[in-house]
């Protein structure tokens, strides 16, 4: 049952920030609402004190997918369907495009937003590992300040971020990787569609004559939140992509995940599988990946 609450539809960012400044404690920002609305309806503790919703869909500042030469800027109110229908995203950010297609169902993708996916910061948020390997940044505004931080710094703990109570995420900016990068996104669920992910992996790699020039690795659902593996990336830099090394790297990913996550009830299954599937992703480089 939906609890009684109010809803505002600010016409621009300023109006929204003013409303937020007045009501910080009990307010929740929504765009698609695919997480917040059922959460409220199910009386989830996460939304227990919510008294006011601010719907950002009418604000021009959070709309549009703007394509620049170096980055693509996606408004916080853009849905996964908007992303899937954007040919530039498909071409320039193929991992994002692929992960967008694995989110929920058509009905969910028609409402749910990319920003909502990471602001919510569920461990299994499908797009997070992808955004992490793209070095995406988050544009955040409050009445008094405007800042842009790496998504990796923005995400703090399961269902928690560094967003202050007077702030709104306005855009997500994704640097377009240079053409030398290739990569892939992998998702494992319990069924073939509309599945909560058991494992997600994202990987971008650039090679120089079979040597790893740069690699970026991130996972979801096997770590408490979507996680980049910088140590692993550093270690891999300059190494040859020989089969033996790829196995080594995959095992190291497994070890790193144990370090981050510890052993859980699901580790016995997830750990070997994540190593196997990361290895498969790496082997995919030889076939050209995405």
């Amino acid at each position: 049952m939906m609890p009684p609450l109010g809803i505002l539809f600010p016409k621009d960012l300023n109006e929204a920030l003013n409303a937020l400044a007045l009501n910080q404690e009990n307010v929740h920002i929504i765009a698609g609402g695919t997480d917040v609305i059922p959460g409220l309806n199910q009386e989830s503790n996460r939304f227990k004190n919510t008294r006011l919703l601010i719907d950002i869909n009418k604000m021009p500042e959070v709309k549009g997918i703007n394509v620049g030469t170096e980055k693509i800027s996606i408004g916080a109110a853009e849905t996964f369907s908007d992303i899937l229908q954007n040919e530039v995203v498909q071409k320039k950010l193929p991992l994002l495009w692929k992960s967008a297609g694995t989110i929920g169902s058509v009905q969910i993708r028609n409402r749910a937003t990319l920003a909502g996916n990471f602001v919510n910061n569920a461990p299994c948020a499908d797009s997070v590992p992808v955004l992490l390997v793209y070095n995406a940044t988050v544009e955040i505004e409050s009445l008094s300040s405007k800042r842009e931080i790496f998504l990796n710094d923005f995400l703090s703990a399961p269902y928690k971020t560094k967003l202050n109570k007077d702030e709104i995420v306005t855009r997500i900016n994704i640097p377009i990787p240079s053409k030398k990068f290739t990569g892939d996104f992998y998702k494992l669920g319990r069924r073939r569609a509309v599945a909560i992910s058991r494992i997600t992996l994202a990987m971008l790699i650039s090679l120089n004559d079979n040597m790893i020039d740069e690699i970026r690795i991130a996972s979801g659902a096997v770590t408490p939140i979507g996680t980049r593996f910088f140590d692993l990336e550093k270690f891999a830099k300059g190494k040859k992509i020989e089969d033996q090394f790829l196995k080594e790297l995959s095992k190291m990913l497994g070890e790193q995940i144990i370090q981050v996550t510890g052993l859980r009830w699901s580790s016995e299954y997830k750990l070997p599988v994540v190593q196997q599937m990361f290895y498969q992703l790496l082997k995919g480089i030889e076939r050209g990946s995405l």
Partner: peptide
């Protein structure tokens, strides 16, 4: 869209 995930106001 799923009408259980949309508020009437939206």
């Amino acid at each position: 869209v799923n009408s259980c995930l949309v508020l009437a106001a939206q």
